[in-house]
Amino acid sequence: MWKYLRSEFLKLRKSTIWLLVFVSPLLSMLIGFGEANFTSDIKEYQWVSTLGVMTIGHSILFLPLLTGVFSSFICRYEHSSGGWKQLLSLPVSRRNVYIGKFLMVSLLIALTQILFVAGLLFIGWMKGFSTGIPWEVILPSVIGGWLACLPLIALQLFASVSWSSFAAPLAINVIFTIPNILIVNSERFGPYYPWAQPFLMMMPDSTDSFGALHVSFETLFIVVLGSLLLFFCSGFMYFMRKEI
């Protein structure tokens, strides 16, 4: 498995697309800086409210979009100049090729999440937040957000492997991401809408202003895991049988 990741990493590293991992953490950090002015009086909530504000744009918009961009891109260089043909006529297992690509995108999203936390810590340090770092809130948030991205990655990878077009899966991803802002408010649909899940998982508990946040963590977790399994297996089976 290791060699599949190394080969993938080489192909990815020389493209500039991975630089996108910096975009959302940076923007979220700027937003976080602006926000804290208003809530600085409630000291216990400094960290959590900053995290909450940073999370909105990051998880409603950027995370779903990034899963699409990375998934499309990791297939693009295979589609564009006969890469699949060459790759799959090597003595490699298709299974590992597919899993390798999935892991690579998951790692990029994980990196994004780590940078996101770094941004939060940087704000706290600059502003001198008085309380200790509430890891018990931050860790579930970023890890949950990452978990919730996995079904999206699986779905996008399926789409990107099927279509040789780079733009089509991306366009569809954007179309499904835009209604997010409405759907996260819906207690009924929110938990079952894959594009809304990163937000629902990431938002710290103390902010109750979005309808779907009332759904229990267990429900969300099962939905995320279930859809991950469904999407991953569909894409995987398709890829195993695909004629190149």
């Binding site: 060699k3 599949y4 190394r6 080969s7 080489l10 192909k11 020389k14 493209s15 260089y77 564009s80 100049s81 006969g82 890469g83 043909k85 060459q86 790759l87 006529s89 090597l90 003595p91 490699v92």
Partner: peptide, 26 residues
Amino acid sequence: SLVEYPSYYGHLTAYENLEAVRILLD
């Protein structure tokens, strides 16, 4: 093998193209 038109990763150099395959071949 070489099937139909040549396959390559345009954004990589020739050396890196070979390296990407070499890693997989050990």
